[in-house]
Design a protein around this nucleic acid. Structure first.
Lengths: 340, 340
DNA sequence: GTGTCAATTGGGAACGTTCCCACCGGGGGT
DNA sequence: ACCCCCGGTGGGAACGTTCCCAATTGACAC
């Protein structure tokens, strides 16, 4: 068992050193891109590596260097949200891509229950990752607390309102919300409402604030309803409530695409046409936006970039470099489609 | 750098051994659940571990034992599909859960381009994982070929038609198709058709076979149309074709939810009501099923279980145990909703 | 009493790196 | 001529496990 049965032994750094006629110290320096390797040595080593088919042994490297070269992606959401939210997948993809560029590995840590929460905290305390990226932390999230207690390099995707001393990468929800709301104003809508959600998170409050910014003096609190979740049913309920309060409503900013989709169904049921009678815009540019009739105008989150950027920051932190920014807001685009 | 600045040194197996007054060999045996540890030793070690706060060093373990305790999840799909397909996320979750029960780690390997393909193959050849789970392999997938060449323990989720000597975990498409078709029969439909798709894959042919099973002698080949893709447009085209052939059609089995959704649009356009005039059922229980009016009755794939089961099989393989089954078909459920 | 075997235990020897210190040779300043 | 420094090199000593063999004990059969 010590040796994979019939397979030939894997080449080690010793084999490379022997083949290249240098010491393993030099090979190690070469592999790690350190200085003090002569051109001749470099060349010989490159050849030797190709010849013996050498690949690094991660375990040995991790053991000797006392780090794991992996970072955890913590998603603290019920499994259902993990599956639905298109942004999470894209963030994962972006993070994975950036990390693998630096030979780092992504470890998925999905917290679906409180039991998971404790397990993950233990895992982190065990030093199994060099750093973590926290997606969608709640306020006073026990995991976030544990992390800052352990002193593990970390970065948030999004921007929790509670003041952890942890850098974050997010989007400018407020500006984006303001800009897309302007679309409704510019197309001459007179009574513009909003279906807000998740006001316990920064994303929720910021989107509402941006809406208010756009409307300025014309802002009417009576035309805002809010619900806890960014869900389809929020859109259904919210639109019904809004129609009841103001049957003449002709513009709606939905805090997410799922909400917008729900709202559009209610509008259709009530005999209103989109965008002729009512203009509607969303937020996220998720699948929902493309399943609407007409297609939904919405804010595109650069979710993969969020992932990449977060990975970069955590890599800086792990390497002991101060990160370029302790808080980054990425710009958003707006996808103009048929709904407004 | 050798030692994390101010942090106290992490406890090792030596500390535990000293504290418990046994040798590190005994501690190691205890940790790995091996026999030949006396009750008294066991007890002392448990106390010692708690006292010194010991957690295993993975890197050292991996190095000494010559395995990585991680398995790769290979998803060979463009990034967009990775994000859309709800099954993939659920499979990931299920796999992750099962692996972490055994202290194994999931490494996501997402192949979105041919460039990735080569990178991943190198990665696998480098021995960075002990085994792999392959989701949605294509026929003659270069990665699958590389894997069977390397001799890496592997398992498919799904059941590619090409004959790799690799076990698989899938669902019983045929039985599920038969069962859901029965719904149409049981509700008194007289002229039941099917919009089949992807007859070049096992899932496509099996679903068709199940449909035929259910209808028995009543099966009429004229009421089956087939197309290459499980897509929405297949549903639109298929339904039109079917209506042309048999205007009195009153039951439709669509080979996927997307197809069903397309078909329902055509039915509505043609003035037929669902489920009053025509009953329709789908397959997958994807988002499409919930976007229909009325909601679609459909076959639920137990995607998380597929992931769990695949993980179990690969764990068996890695441990050198012959897997319980070389091909497993998991049972499906049917979600009864409004469409039939 | 002696031999045998099973249940335990101890500890040497890897595993394949990185880290670090000692060393070498030559060019430039004194 | 001397010393020093600097690019470059070699190799000993970890890193924290697992693996395996040898040693010890006690029970039990002969």
């Amino acid at each position: 068992m010590r040796q994979r049965s019939n397979q030939p032994r894997r080449a080690t750094i010793f084999d490379v050193a022997a083949e290249a006629n240098v010491s393993r110290g030099t090979v190690s320096r070469f592999l790690n891109g350190e200085p003090y390797v002569s051109d001749s040595a470099r060349e010989a080593i490159e050849k030797a590596i190709a010849k013996v088919g050498y690949v690094r042994n991660m375990a040995a490297r991790n053991l000797a260097s006392q780090r794991t070269r992996s970072v955890g992606l913590i998603v603290h959401e019920p499994h259902s949200v993990f599956l639905d939210d298109p942004n999470i997948g894209a963030i994962l993809l972006g993070t994975n891509e950036r990390l693998s560029e630096e030979d780092y590995q992504l470890v998925c840590l999905i917290i679906g229950s409180d039991r998971d929460s404790a397990r993950v905290a233990d895992f982190l305390r065990g030093g199994f990752v060099d750093g973590v990226i926290i997606v969608s932390a709640r306020e006073y999230d026990p995991i976030a607390l544990a992390i800052s207690e352990i002193g593990l390099p970390a970065v948030f995707v999004g921007h929790p309102t509670t003041p952890y001393d942890i850098p974050f990468v997010g989007i400018d929800n407020r500006t984006a919300a303001r800009d897309i709301t302007h679309r409704l104003i510019d197309t001459g809508r007179q009574r513009i409402g909003m279906i807000a959600a998740a006001l316990d998170r920064d994303s929720g409050t910021e989107r509402l604030a941006g809406f208010q910014d756009a409307l300025g003096a014309g802002f009417d609190p009576a035309l805002v309803v809010d619900y806890p979740l960014y869900s389809h049913s929020t859109g259904v309920d919210g639109m019904r409530a809004l129609l009841e309060r103001e049957p003449l409503i002709d513009g709606v900013f939905a805090a997410s695409d799922a909400i917008a989709a729900g709202a559009m169904e209610v509008l259709r049921e009530s005999g209103r046409r989109v965008p002729v009678d009512v203009g509607i815009v969303g937020f996220d540019d998720s699948e929902w936006a493309l399943r609407c009739q007409p297609l939904l105008s919405t804010v595109q989150q650069p979710a993969d970039l969020l992932g990449r950027e977060a990975a970069s920051v955590v890599l800086d932190l792990v390497a002991g470099r101060p990160p370029a920014n302790t808080g980054t807001l990425l710009p958003t685009e707006i996808a103009w489609r048929g709904s407004a």
